[in-house]
Amino acid sequence: MPAQENTTLKTEYADKVRADLERNRSEQERIRAEIETLQAQLATLESDHALLESMSAALGDETAAAVPAPRRGRKTAGTTPAKKTTVTKTAAAARKTAVTKTAAKKSAAKTAVQKPADTVPPLTDLIHQHLSGQSEPRTAREIATALAETHPTRNISDNLVRTTTERLVARSRVERAKQGSTVYYTAIKTETAPGPAEETTAAAS
């Protein structure tokens, strides 16, 4: 295998590892955010539970802590039937509210979990898109500076941008030009490339 091809393969593997690391970090941040949301939900449920227990104790319902719901037909000592009905309705209303809140929070958490994890566009696409919108060639440092401003949460360095842009050059998506010791990059417009029909016509002529 030629040395240049070996170097290109190593560069591509290194870029893939960097991209995987970046995706891994993004996934960790997403999961940490979900854990914090679930912990907040758990804290709310525990607070609601403590409040319901306090209400139950204040109302004199000693069986509420032992069973999930008030039992029908069971009389509480020192409580008249009318008061028992009031206690049952109050506890049922409070429980219904807590269940509704829990269901809504679970639905929101499920929706958050089902969101695609990989929503960040690849660096190659960002670079090509940036160069396509420029009227003049750009250096790797200029590209990195512009992308760092528009994507402050991403880890973008000059070396990473230079290596990734060279991959685009190898794929004929970006053109490289050297002036002195400075290398400039320009996006190749894909729509100007001749199609199969045009190539066949040119070959026939």
Rank of each mutant, 00 (worst) to 15 (best):
175 E>H: 14
142 E>P: 04
24 N>S: 12
111 T>H: 02
189 K>T: 11
65 A>N: 10
137 P>D: 07
31 I>T: 11
88 T>S: 05
113 V>A: 06
125 D>R: 14
146 A>Y: 05
42 L>R: 11
157 S>D: 03
142 E>K: 14
12 E>H: 08
54 S>I: 05
28 Q>E: 12
153 T>R: 10
121 P>M: 13
20 D>K: 14
179 Q>G: 09
52 L>W: 09
81 P>A: 04
88 T>E: 10
50 A>I: 06
114 Q>D: 12
107 S>W: 04
165 T>E: 03
23 R>L: 02
125 D>H: 07
35 I>C: 03
18 R>F: 00
182 T>E: 14
49 H>T: 12
204 A>C: 02
92 A>H: 05
152 P>M: 03
200 T>C: 09
185 Y>H: 10
31 I>G: 01
171 R>Y: 05
153 T>H: 12
180 G>T: 05
43 A>Q: 07
139 T>E: 09
161 V>T: 15
85 T>D: 06
167 R>P: 00
130 H>R: 04
41 Q>E: 13
51 L>R: 11
39 Q>A: 11
85 T>F: 02
154 R>K: 13
3 A>T: 10
200 T>M: 15
168 L>S: 07
162 R>I: 09
142 E>Y: 04
36 E>L: 08
14 A>M: 07
149 E>P: 00
64 A>D: 13
181 S>Y: 07
9 L>T: 09
187 A>Y: 00
6 N>P: 14
138 R>V: 05
98 A>P: 01
120 V>F: 08
153 T>F: 06
121 P>D: 11
13 Y>K: 06
146 A>T: 10
39 Q>D: 14
158 D>Q: 10
150 T>Y: 06
146 A>W: 05
158 D>I: 04
162 R>N: 11
102 T>E: 04
107 S>D: 15
121 P>K: 03
148 A>N: 05
196 P>R: 06
23 R>K: 13
166 E>P: 00
180 G>D: 05
123 L>D: 02
1 M>A: 15
156 I>W: 11
200 T>G: 13
26 S>F: 00
96 K>D: 12
76 T>V: 13
10 K>N: 09
82 A>H: 03
10 K>I: 14
1 M>N: 07
26 S>P: 01
124 T>P: 00
157 S>G: 07
83 K>Y: 12
158 D>M: 02
71 R>Q: 09
34 E>S: 10
30 R>S: 09
35 I>P: 00
136 E>Y: 05
24 N>F: 15
18 R>E: 08
15 D>A: 11
119 T>P: 00
150 T>H: 03
147 L>E: 02
56 S>R: 09
59 L>R: 01
80 T>P: 00
126 L>W: 01
43 A>R: 15
135 S>A: 15
175 E>A: 14
92 A>S: 13
84 K>I: 09
165 T>I: 02
142 E>R: 13
78 G>S: 08
95 R>C: 03
74 R>F: 08
174 V>E: 10
34 E>K: 08
141 R>T: 12
117 A>P: 01
119 T>V: 13
58 A>F: 03
167 R>K: 11
188 I>V: 14
15 D>F: 00
145 T>M: 06
195 G>V: 09
204 A>Q: 11
